[in-house]
Design a protein around this nucleic acid. Structure first.
Length: 410
RNA sequence: GCCAGGGUGGGGUAGUUGGUUAUCCUAAGGGACUGUGGAUCCCUCGACCCGGGUUCGAAUCUCGGCCCUGGCCCCA
């Protein structure tokens, strides 16, 4: 049998309905905050992503040549494309620009729990507002959106300036190593790296920074930094609005293009792949030929949210099985149409089953059965049977529709 | 890329000192049953991940690959 490609999934209707339901909650939150949906191509010029993230990412993307020999790739993320779109056609739009997207992305990596080669991200980008409130809004939106799904998570918020201040003057390679240790809160590894480079005097401030649980403590470690006022204002807004988060000034990994505020979210009940949110303030537009513009955004790992949530309860939907005898088929199709026009899901037998088998089948898949046979055709009625109670009654079509509509939601 | 554990009908499983036609449950289709229920009974459909090796004989042993699961690395 032909297998699906590695790291991809098929979704049966039951799972799709759950996914759409959670997606809809996220969309609704984005809408309320004024973030309008955009869509970019599933594939882009390879250059778009190498410009943003370097040549090293090529091995982790689905790269191909099109028939004209252009280097293309399936998108591994959406932010670069949104900023390209902004540079291409968004520059004349009044600022700030609030955009969101829900899109599948592709990365050629080893699959594991919560990590797939095709996966979905729900993200937002706020473009053109360079204020503390802009950063805070995006964080509050991320928090609101994750809460709407019901996922249990921890929100970490930080800023890159304090760490960069301590590390200023070191060579970039060493900075990277040190930041990786801090990001993992690996203090032993940190000490080893520092000792090997004769930088042991940095161990104490870096460890202190990693342990900071409030903004005040950060500046006790670093002293004044130019970004201090902005940082204090951002965190102050979050505090004033009762956002539940943990200050984390060790956030550092994989964030080369972030410029200031950074934040991450972690699902509490997932294993190794538990990060469900990543975002921050960045500047990218200049890479794609635009004027430099401040932006802030995030992406939610939709599939991980779904793994974390497990089974999602869906609203009840009444289903009607329309059952008929052969001579009543024309009338039965009219009856089914009338139910559908009233917004009720109605299904007819396609298998030429006998009446008994039709009812038995409906009992597996529906709450109601509407029987249309010779008797009903002659009387101009239908028989409505409630399959959960077993009650049945012959009545007019309008009454039957009202009876079903009054039963469930939707 | 690294480590570990796994792959038997659509789903779940039994079966490995190598030995007939591979077990059971479930789902699906049909029938018993031509105007009324998921029961019952009967029938049908349907699997040893792929390839090489050892052997008279491989689901079982062996090698390679593919895929899945958990962890590491990475994570734009």
């Amino acid at each position: 049998m032909l297998q699906k490609p590695r790291g991809t999934r098929d979704f049966l209707p039951e799972e799709m309905e759950q996914r759409r339901s959670i997606e809809q909650r996220m969309r609704e939150v984005a809408r309320r905050w004024g973030y309008r949906e955009v869509c970019t191509p599933d594939f882009e010029h390879l250059e778009l992503f190498t410009m943003k993230s370097g040549e090293g990412i090529i091995q982790e993307m689905y790269v191909f040549e099109d028939k004209s020999g252009r280097k293309m790739t399936l998108r591994p993320e959406v932010t670069a494309a949104v900023l390209r779109m902004y540079v291409n056609e968004g520059r004349v739009i009044p600022k700030p620009i609030r955009w969101c997207y829900f899109a599948d992305c592709f990365r050629y990596e080893r699959p594991q729990k919560g990590r797939y080669r095709q996966f979905w991200q729900f993200g937002v980008e706020l473009i053109g507002a360079d204020t503390a409130l802009a950063d805070a809004e995006v964080i509050m939106l991320a928090d609101d959106m994750l809460r709407s799904t019901g996922v249990t998570f921890d929100l970490h918020v930080g800023h890159l300036a304090p760490m960069k201040h301590i590390l200023s003057g070191l060579d970039p390679g060493d900075q990277g190593l040190i930041m990786a240790c801090l990001d993992k809160h690996d203090l032993e590894g940190l000490e080893a790296v520092l000792a090997a480079r004769g930088l042991s005097h940095l161990a104490e401030p870096l460890a202190a920074l990693s342990g900071c649980r409030s903004v005040d403590e950060v500046f006790e470690v670093t002293g004044d930094v130019p970004e201090r006022t902005r940082i204090e204002e951002t965190f102050g807004i979050l505090d004033s609005q009762g956002v539940s988060y943990r200050p984390d000034f060790g956030i550092a990994r994989g964030l080369d293009y972030y410029t200031g505020t950074v934040f991450e979210g972690f699902a509490r009940n997932l294993g190794a792949e538990n990060q469900i949110l990543g975002g921050g303030a960045y500047r990218l537009a200049h890479l794609f030929g635009g004027e430099d513009v401040a932006s802030c955004g995030f992406a939610i790992g939709f599939d991980r949210v779904m793994v974390s949530l497990g089974e999602v309860e869906l609203p009840h939907e009444s289903v009607v099985g329309v059952v008929c005898t052969p001579e009543a088929r024309t009338r039965a199709l009219q009856v089914a149409r009338a139910f559908r026009e009233a917004g009720i899901r109605a299904e007819v037998d396609l298998m030429q089953r006998g009446l008994s088998a039709q009812v038995a089948h409906a009992a597996k898949t529906a709450e109601f059965v509407v029987i249309v046979g010779k008797r009903e055709v002659e009387a101009g009625t239908v028989t409505l049977k409630n399959l959960s109670t077993g009650e049945q009654k012959e009545m007019g079509l309008e009454d039957a529709i009202a009876g079903v509509a009054g039963h469930g939601h939707r």
